[in-house]
């Protein structure tokens, strides 16, 4: 599309520039950016480094010390004592279903708000956007009461439904922004061909909206993956617990196994990073198009 054209052009311009010898400005720029980059990536290095330290090394005088020898046993403890594998499966299940459900629902909503003509469209959209402002903690107890009444406690749905609900407003907001940029002429042609709304939505709009979907999916993935307060509250049985519970096994009052604690945290961080790395281009495309309209 048009957007892609721009990026390609930028890249060719940048490539042309690259052949020139490095100027003083560039050296300063690269040094500066390297420092900034280091500051930002530091926690990650720190995390992995600490996950390989002996607990005793944590309180040294330096904040960064190389493990010698690396304590891979920390990861073994994490797996055995932290119940990492079953919780990992639960986390994957809950996160993926929440993310997919959020994406699906958000597309439907966004389409209704950008294309369909109905009286309460603007009002409805604003009400949904209000959802962004609701603090999670205000809904903890009411939701527990509701789940208890309808027998949803201790099930995957007890996490999937609230996760989806809290992710919908911002997701719909981003997808709506993106859909605004899609020219209506595409659909007009399809309508003349006699296509139904559903056909248009899934065969034409959905493929074009993919970058926006990737954006919201990664953001939602990170949110769901790291969420712990609802997970503590709505689930009690081992069978349904998610990964953040593994940290609890180690941060316990009577436990000083810092190494294993950080090993668990590393294990939790890795999937988020992989997700981001895979979808990084898509995310930018999604945000970019959203920005044109705002």
């Amino acid at each position: 599309m048009e957007i892609q054209g721009h990026t390609n052009q930028t890249i060719t311009i940048l490539q042309k520039r690259k052949r020139k010898p490095l100027g003083v400005g560039k050296v300063i720029l690269y040094t500066f950016m390297a420092i900034i980059g280091f500051l930002q990536i530091f926690p990650l290095l720190w995390l992995f480094n600490y996950s390989l330290l002996k607990s005793g090394d944590f309180f040294g005088d330096t904040i960064f010390q190389l493990p010698s020898p690396p304590q891979w046993g920390n990861y073994v403890s994490a797996f055995t004592q932290g119940n990492v594998l079953p919780y990992f499966f639960n986390s994957v299940l809950v996160t993926f279903v929440s993310v997919a459900l959020t994406a699906f629902v958000s597309i439907l909503l966004a389409y209704a708000f950008t294309r369909m003509k109905w009286r309460f469209s603007a009002l409805f959209m604003n009400i949904i956007l209000l959802g962004m402002m609701i603090p999670i903690h205000a809904t903890l107890l009411p939701n527990f009461i509701i789940f208890n009444e309808i027998g949803l406690l201790n099930s995957y749905w007890a996490l999937i439904l609230p996760y989806t609900a809290f992710n919908i407003p911002i997701s719909m907001f981003i997808v709506t922004g993106f859909m605004e940029t899609i020219p209506r002429s595409i659909e007009e042609a399809a309508v003349i061909d006699g296509a139904s709304i559903w056909k248009i939505l899934f065969k034409i709009i959905f493929p074009i909206t993919k970058p926006a979907i990737a954006t919201i999916s990664v953001v939602n993935f990170i949110n769901c993956w790291n969420e712990f307060i609802m997970a503590y509250t709505f689930n009690t049985m081992d069978q349904f617990k998610t990964l953040p519970f593994s940290i609890v096994q180690f941060v316990g009052q009577y436990s000083s196994n810092y190494g294993a604690q950080f090993a668990v945290m590393s294990l939790i961080a890795i999937p988020s990073i992989i997700m981001y790395l895979i979808f990084t281009d898509e995310i930018n495309k999604g945000l970019m198009a959203g920005s044109v309209k705002g």
Binding site: Q40, P43, M265
Partner: peptide
């Protein structure tokens, strides 16, 4: 790299 702090769990 610049986005990395946003990915990692707040606990960390």
């Amino acid at each position: 790299i610049l986005f990395i702090p946003a990915i990692i769990s707040i606990v960390v």
